[in-house]
Deep mutational scan, measured.
Amino acid sequence: ENVVSAPMPGKVLRVLVRVGDRVRVGQGLLVLEAMKMENEIPSPRDGVVKRILVKEGEIVDTGQPLIELG
């Protein structure tokens, strides 16, 4: 699984990683606000951040690609 998608609609509050960062399974990639709750979106696997597909403040839909892992 190379693309991390939004599990719910919401607003991207914070991106916690940068392109080139090594991440571990379960590590927070970004914080999504949904229904006034902050939800940290975890990495599904170990890898390297290849691309960040959203910006802070952006509104996303369920299933929208957020981050690509390499």
Rank of each mutant, 00 (worst) to 15 (best):
G47S: 02
R22I: 10
L69C: 14
G28T: 03
G47T: 02
P7S: 05
R24E: 10
P65F: 01
M37W: 07
S5Q: 01
D46G: 13
I52M: 02
Q64S: 07
L29Y: 13
N2A: 08
R24C: 13
N39R: 03
V15K: 07
E56P: 07
L30P: 15
G26F: 04
M37F: 04
K36F: 08
V54A: 01
R45V: 11
R22N: 08
V48G: 07
E58D: 11
R18T: 01
I59T: 12
R45Q: 11
V54E: 10
E33F: 02
V15S: 01
L32T: 06
K55G: 00
E40I: 08
G70P: 02
V31K: 07
E33I: 02
V17D: 12
I59G: 11
A6N: 07
L13R: 09
L53I: 08
V15F: 04
L32S: 09
E40A: 01
S43F: 06
V15E: 03
V15N: 13
D61V: 00
E38A: 11
T62I: 08
V25G: 08
S5W: 13
L69I: 12
V25Q: 12
P42E: 12
G10F: 02
P9K: 05
V60D: 15
G28K: 05
R24L: 02
V60T: 05
V4F: 08
E56Y: 09
V3Q: 09
V48L: 09
L29I: 04
D21I: 13
V4P: 09
E40P: 04
N2P: 02
V23F: 05
L13A: 03
G57M: 02
V12T: 12
D46P: 03
E58C: 14
P65G: 01
S43T: 10
N39F: 12
P42Q: 00
G26R: 09
V19L: 12
G26H: 06
I41S: 07
N39H: 06
E38L: 00
G57N: 02
E1L: 15
E40V: 00
E1G: 15
G26D: 05
R14L: 02
V17Q: 01
G47N: 06
A6K: 12
V31D: 03
D46A: 06
L29S: 06
G10I: 00
L32C: 15
V49C: 14
M8F: 13
V49N: 03
K55D: 05
I67N: 04
K11L: 10
A34K: 03
V49P: 12
G57S: 05
L29G: 00
V17K: 05
E40N: 00
D21K: 13
